[in-house]
């Protein structure tokens, strides 16, 4: 069961209730110029306990923080959006491409792992083919995998849930 948006945001310390619906957030949003993302409406919907978790616009935010910087009430809008997203993900709603990236993290310890092109570029520059990250240190990768198991992340990503989008 998901927590109601207003309650969740309150518990996490986001003062969405103090929003005066001035629209500075929407007016400052670079994504909103090109997408249906309307930050002001998300804030309104969340505090009225409408179902924002199924709202795909949640994922149009680039987390540029411009709305949060300019909000005259000092509401941590983006941090709140991240909280709403996480709740949505825990309901099984994860965009397919995000699930892929999460899978790369689980397998490789990198969201953007090395590929043949990357190896060739490194060689061309006289560098080692693999960087000194988990790529070159298998024990470190084991640590990352264990960590992801302990936090339940592996389950979260592999368990597609009933509401997979």
């Amino acid at each position: 069961m998901s927590t109601e948006p207003a309650k969740l945001l309150e518990e996490e310390g986001f003062s969405y209730l103090t929003c005066i619906q001035c629209g500075t957030c929407t007016g400052s949003c670079p994504s909103g110029r090109h997408t249906s993302l309307n930050t002001r409406r998300i804030v309104l919907s969340a505090r009225r306990n409408r179902d924002v978790y199924h709202d795909k616009d949640l994922w149009m935010c680039t987390t540029c923080y411009q709305c949060q910087e300019r909000c005259p009430r000092g509401i941590r809008i983006v941090d709140g959006i991240l909280t709403l997203r996480a709740e949505s993900v825990h309901m099984g709603l994860m965009l397919p491409d995000h699930r892929k990236v999460a899978g790369l993290m689980i397998d490789k310890g990198h969201a953007v792992p090395i590929n043949d092109d990357g190896r060739a570029k490194r060689k061309e520059l006289g560098m080692d083919e693999l960087p000194e990250t988990v790529h070159k240190h298998p024990q470190a990768l084991d640590q990352v995998k264990k960590l992801l198991e302990l936090t339940g992340f592996m389950q979260l990503v592999t368990d597609e849930g009933t509401e997979n989008s």
Binding site: T62, M105, T133, A140, T151
Partner: peptide, 25 residues
Amino acid sequence: DLEGASCCPAPGVFRSFDKITWLAL
């Protein structure tokens, strides 16, 4: 060299998924 480091993890995706996972990584 910071040997054995992983993805930071990427703030947009992983912070959006699960706060404790993001924080622990």
